[in-house]
Design a binder for these strands. Structure first.
Lengths: 262, 262
DNA sequence: CGTTGCGTTGAGTACCATCAACTGGGGTGG
DNA sequence: CCACCCCAGTTGATGGTACTCAACGCAACG
């Protein structure tokens, strides 16, 4: 882990817009959000129909915050809010009584934390913050109301659910039928693709705040083995990584390992 | 595999209502369906609102049929129909170019084949018939229309999607964090629970038309290992099985192996 | 300066895959 | 009617991938 992605931090600063929010919190926190152009918020805010029945006071609420390693939601909890992750990373997971843990999916900035919550109050998994996070809550009923009248928002939300489904299926294939190398490479490439859609990748390098324990619990491996796999990737000149950033050096090589087409 | 569940076939005959349909095919094929009380069709047909805007001619269409081992849908295909499996079993799967195959889920009689198709035309997986099957197709747009006006149907459909989600999450946990024994036991118990909801379990015994190759592709194992696991279950007095039926002898023992609570 | 958490590395091992041979049943064709 | 094949399942031998257990370095932190 000696080699450092020296310039990465200057290139992208996903957190810096938060500094701006702090000072203007009485206005909409979404005002200066750089993700808005690339995620569902575009349809919620910018593209709202002219006759929007909801000047939606919920949109002017201050953001919720949570610190790294704290749970945002717990399995079985009931709630009538749908949250969107404005800043920071999180993950959905299930904790088994004997200590085993399976991470169901990683949530990156701009994602909806619980897209299926529009269908029901309860969720079957817990959500934990991976970094310090801020998120916006929307009232479930109000959202459902808007989905009923705003066709473009409804379509976008449908897309969200379908995309999530495909991600889960990809994950199932990884866990059921792919080797450790394939799983890890695939995870890296998938996260890169998702971050790219949000404008958070530059020069093949991006924020990657996953500890090896988190990677292990996502890919169904042990942390020790993840260390070996990532080590082999590094020695093969495929990637470079620090604690919080990752740069893909040889993307074709990495794809050869883990971007197996479905 | 010597021991036979001698009386099972007399106890339940899930296929026999089809014989009735054959002779009355000009009427609604759903007329005599025994599953209707237990699945989404209840809300589609029996519980239709008085002012149903749709005397839905689609409901009077003859059933589609497909023979065992043939694909019902292929990944990437576009279609504007949502299908409900009236009779027989099927499975959703992804075929990898190198021959590996992962089964995403098993579809039992009464299930919606593609619940998420209401959100979009395309699906990411293929569906294959496991036995001879018959299914009813509904027009996606018409269904969406009814969902918009019929609250109980909409709620039922939401439930469908949430339930499917939870099943998938359970599957992810199995593949990522559970041993072969646990996976197989869990699969058996999950299918039993789902069949029970449809009134298709009697005396702990139920139809089970999955070959060991199918079980292997579902659980991420090899057929040989599935054979060993099922063999050990049989020798331990947990289950009895024929090619198409399965009886749980010692449900507590089986639960101790694979019903680990989430 | 001890502690704690994370990553790395090594040695030994277990679980499951792979390869192979064999069985029995069902279908097919001579 | 029998020979044959094919498929599903079983069983054994062998091996590899990834796990387990353990020790250690290192940075952050109180």
């Amino acid at each position: 882990m000696g080699e450092i992605v020296a310039t990465a931090e200057e290139q992208i600063q996903p957190h810096n817009n938060l500094e701006a929010w702090k000072s203007t919190e009485k206005a909409s926190p979404c005002e200066q959000c750089k993700l808005r152009a690339f995620n569902i918020c575009h349809y919620l805010i910018d593209d709202a129909p002219a006759a929007a029945d909801t000047p939606d006071k919920s949109m002017w609420q201050p953001l919720e915050r949570q610190r790294a390693r704290r749970n945002i939601k717990s399995a079985g909890e009931r709630a009538n809010r749908v949250s969107i992750l404005c800043d920071g990373w999180a993950f959905r997971f299930v904790q088994l009584p004997d200590g085993r843990r399976q991470i169901l999916s990683i949530i990156v900035p701009g994602d909806v934390i619980t897209p299926t919550r529009i269908f029901g109050e309860q969720i079957a998994f817990s959500v934990q913050a991976l970094t310090d996070v801020r998120y916006q809550k929307y009232d479930r009923a109000a959202l459902k109301g808007r989905l009923a009248t705003d066709q473009r928002l409804a379509d976008a939300w449908s897309d969200l659910i379908l995309t999530e489904h495909q991600q889960i299926f990809g994950h199932l294939i990884d866990l059921g039928r792919r080797s450790a190398d394939e799983r890890v490479a695939h995870l890296v490439l998938e996260l890169k693709a998702r971050l790219k859609q949000r404008g958070l990748v530059s020069q093949q390098s991006f924020e990657f705040p996953l500890s090896q324990k988190i990677v292990a619990d996502t890919t169904g491996l042990t942390p020790e083995h993840v260390s070996r796999v990532l080590g082999s990737f590094r020695r093969a000149g495929l990637i470079e990584a620090t604690e919080t950033w990752l740069r893909i050096i040889n993307i074709d090589g990495l794809r050869r390992v883990g971007d197996l087409r479905i």
